[in-house]
Amino acid sequence: KKYKVVEVKENKDGTVELVVENENGEKKKITLSKEELDKLKAGDTVELK
C-alpha cells in the first residue's frame, strides 16, 4: 500500500514520528530513525507492507 506523509514530528530521542495516510483516508503513525527520514519530507509517498 502507498501512504502519503501528512505530518513529520521530531522526538527528543532522535527518532522521527510520521503520520501517513492512504487513499482511503486511513492514517497510520510510524516511527523512523533520523537516517531513514533523511530522504523523506511532507508530501512524499511511502510504501508500507
Score class of each variant (00 low, 15 high):
residue 1 K to F: 10
residue 1 K to Q: 10
residue 1 K to S: 09
residue 1 K to V: 12
residue 2 K to G: 02
residue 2 K to M: 13
residue 2 K to H: 04
residue 2 K to R: 10
residue 2 K to T: 09
residue 2 K to S: 05
residue 3 Y to V: 01
residue 3 Y to A: 01
residue 3 Y to N: 00
residue 3 Y to C: 02
residue 3 Y to P: 00
residue 4 K to V: 06
residue 4 K to I: 08
residue 4 K to N: 02
residue 4 K to W: 05
residue 4 K to L: 06
residue 5 V to W: 04
residue 5 V to C: 14
residue 5 V to N: 01
residue 5 V to P: 00
residue 5 V to G: 01
residue 6 V to D: 01
residue 6 V to K: 05
residue 6 V to N: 03
residue 6 V to A: 02
residue 6 V to H: 05
residue 6 V to W: 10
residue 6 V to R: 03
residue 6 V to M: 08
residue 7 E to L: 09
residue 7 E to H: 08
residue 7 E to M: 11
residue 7 E to G: 08
residue 7 E to A: 10
residue 8 V to L: 09
residue 8 V to N: 01
residue 8 V to G: 01
residue 8 V to R: 04
residue 9 K to T: 08
residue 9 K to E: 03
residue 9 K to H: 11
residue 9 K to Y: 12
residue 9 K to I: 10
residue 9 K to P: 00
residue 9 K to N: 09
residue 9 K to D: 02
residue 9 K to V: 11
residue 10 E to M: 08
residue 10 E to T: 09
residue 10 E to H: 13
residue 10 E to R: 04
residue 10 E to D: 12
residue 10 E to A: 07
residue 10 E to I: 05
residue 10 E to C: 14
residue 10 E to V: 07
residue 10 E to S: 06
residue 11 N to I: 06
residue 11 N to F: 09
residue 11 N to H: 09
residue 11 N to M: 10
residue 12 K to D: 09
residue 12 K to S: 11
residue 12 K to Q: 11
residue 12 K to E: 08
residue 12 K to W: 11
residue 12 K to R: 10
residue 12 K to C: 14
residue 13 D to S: 02
residue 13 D to M: 02
residue 13 D to E: 03
residue 13 D to I: 02
residue 13 D to N: 09
residue 13 D to V: 01
residue 13 D to C: 10
residue 13 D to G: 03
residue 13 D to F: 03
residue 14 G to H: 02
residue 14 G to E: 01
residue 14 G to V: 00
residue 14 G to M: 02
residue 14 G to K: 01
residue 14 G to D: 02
residue 14 G to F: 02
residue 14 G to P: 00
residue 14 G to C: 05
residue 14 G to S: 02
residue 14 G to T: 01
residue 15 T to R: 04
residue 15 T to N: 05
residue 15 T to E: 03
residue 15 T to L: 06
residue 15 T to D: 04
residue 16 V to S: 04
residue 16 V to P: 00
residue 16 V to Q: 02
residue 16 V to G: 08
residue 16 V to K: 04
residue 16 V to C: 13
residue 16 V to H: 05
residue 17 E to L: 11
residue 17 E to Q: 09
residue 17 E to D: 10
residue 17 E to T: 11
residue 17 E to M: 12
residue 17 E to N: 07
residue 18 L to Q: 00
residue 18 L to P: 00
residue 18 L to G: 00
residue 18 L to A: 07
residue 19 V to S: 07
residue 19 V to N: 02
residue 19 V to M: 08
residue 19 V to Q: 05
residue 19 V to I: 09
residue 19 V to Y: 06
residue 19 V to T: 10
residue 20 V to G: 00
residue 20 V to P: 00
residue 20 V to D: 00
residue 20 V to A: 03
residue 20 V to S: 01
residue 20 V to M: 07
residue 20 V to L: 08
residue 20 V to C: 10
residue 20 V to Q: 00
residue 20 V to F: 05
residue 21 E to C: 08
residue 21 E to G: 01
residue 21 E to H: 03
residue 21 E to V: 12
residue 21 E to K: 05
residue 21 E to P: 00
residue 22 N to P: 01
residue 22 N to S: 13
residue 22 N to C: 13
residue 22 N to G: 13
residue 23 E to W: 11
residue 23 E to Y: 08
residue 23 E to A: 07
residue 23 E to Q: 07
residue 23 E to F: 08
residue 23 E to I: 07
residue 23 E to H: 06
residue 24 N to Y: 10
residue 24 N to E: 12
residue 24 N to Q: 11
residue 24 N to H: 11
residue 24 N to R: 10
residue 24 N to K: 10
residue 25 G to I: 00
residue 25 G to R: 04
residue 25 G to C: 07
residue 25 G to N: 04
residue 25 G to S: 03
residue 25 G to M: 04
residue 26 E to K: 06
residue 26 E to M: 09
residue 26 E to W: 12
residue 26 E to H: 08
residue 26 E to Q: 08
residue 27 K to M: 13
residue 27 K to H: 12
residue 27 K to L: 13
residue 27 K to C: 12
residue 27 K to I: 12
residue 27 K to A: 07
residue 28 K to R: 14
residue 28 K to W: 15
residue 28 K to G: 05
residue 28 K to T: 13
residue 28 K to D: 05
residue 29 K to D: 02
residue 29 K to S: 14
residue 29 K to L: 11
residue 29 K to E: 05
residue 29 K to Q: 12
residue 30 I to W: 14
residue 30 I to V: 10
residue 30 I to K: 01
residue 30 I to G: 01
residue 30 I to T: 01
residue 31 T to R: 08
residue 31 T to M: 10
residue 31 T to S: 07
residue 32 L to F: 13
residue 32 L to P: 01
residue 32 L to K: 02
residue 32 L to M: 11
residue 32 L to Q: 02
residue 32 L to D: 00
residue 33 S to N: 10
residue 33 S to M: 14
residue 33 S to D: 09
residue 33 S to H: 11
residue 33 S to Q: 12
residue 33 S to F: 14
residue 33 S to C: 15
residue 33 S to I: 07
residue 34 K to V: 08
residue 34 K to W: 11
residue 34 K to F: 11
residue 34 K to Q: 07
residue 34 K to H: 12
residue 34 K to C: 11
residue 34 K to I: 13
residue 34 K to E: 05
residue 34 K to T: 10
residue 34 K to G: 14
residue 35 E to D: 13
residue 35 E to I: 12
residue 35 E to N: 14
residue 35 E to V: 12
residue 35 E to K: 12
residue 36 E to M: 11
residue 36 E to S: 14
residue 36 E to Q: 10
residue 36 E to D: 11
residue 36 E to A: 11
residue 37 L to A: 15
residue 37 L to S: 15
residue 37 L to K: 14
residue 37 L to M: 11
residue 37 L to H: 10
residue 38 D to S: 13
residue 38 D to F: 12
residue 38 D to I: 10
residue 38 D to E: 10
residue 38 D to G: 15
residue 38 D to V: 12
residue 39 K to R: 09
residue 39 K to V: 07
residue 39 K to P: 12
residue 39 K to E: 13
residue 39 K to W: 06
residue 39 K to D: 14
residue 39 K to I: 07
residue 39 K to G: 15
residue 39 K to Y: 08
residue 40 L to P: 13
residue 40 L to S: 05
residue 40 L to Y: 15
residue 41 K to Q: 10
residue 41 K to V: 10
residue 41 K to A: 08
residue 41 K to L: 08
residue 41 K to S: 07
residue 41 K to F: 04
residue 41 K to D: 05
residue 42 A to S: 07
residue 42 A to G: 03
residue 42 A to H: 07
residue 42 A to D: 07
residue 42 A to M: 12
residue 42 A to I: 15
residue 43 G to D: 06
residue 43 G to T: 04
residue 43 G to W: 05
residue 43 G to L: 03
residue 43 G to Y: 03
residue 43 G to I: 03
residue 44 D to T: 03
residue 44 D to S: 06
residue 44 D to L: 05
residue 44 D to E: 10
residue 44 D to G: 09
residue 44 D to Q: 05
residue 44 D to P: 02
residue 45 T to A: 02
residue 45 T to D: 14
residue 45 T to K: 06
residue 45 T to L: 13
residue 45 T to W: 15
residue 46 V to N: 06
residue 46 V to M: 04
residue 46 V to L: 14
residue 46 V to Q: 03
residue 46 V to Y: 02
residue 46 V to T: 05
residue 46 V to D: 12
residue 46 V to R: 01
residue 47 E to S: 06
residue 47 E to Y: 09
residue 47 E to C: 14
residue 47 E to K: 04
residue 47 E to Q: 06
residue 47 E to A: 02
residue 47 E to R: 06
residue 47 E to N: 10
residue 47 E to L: 05
residue 47 E to D: 13
residue 47 E to V: 04
residue 48 L to T: 09
residue 48 L to P: 07
residue 48 L to S: 05
residue 48 L to E: 10
residue 48 L to G: 07
residue 49 K to L: 14
residue 49 K to W: 04
residue 49 K to H: 15
residue 49 K to I: 15
residue 49 K to M: 14
residue 49 K to R: 08
residue 49 K to S: 15
residue 49 K to G: 15
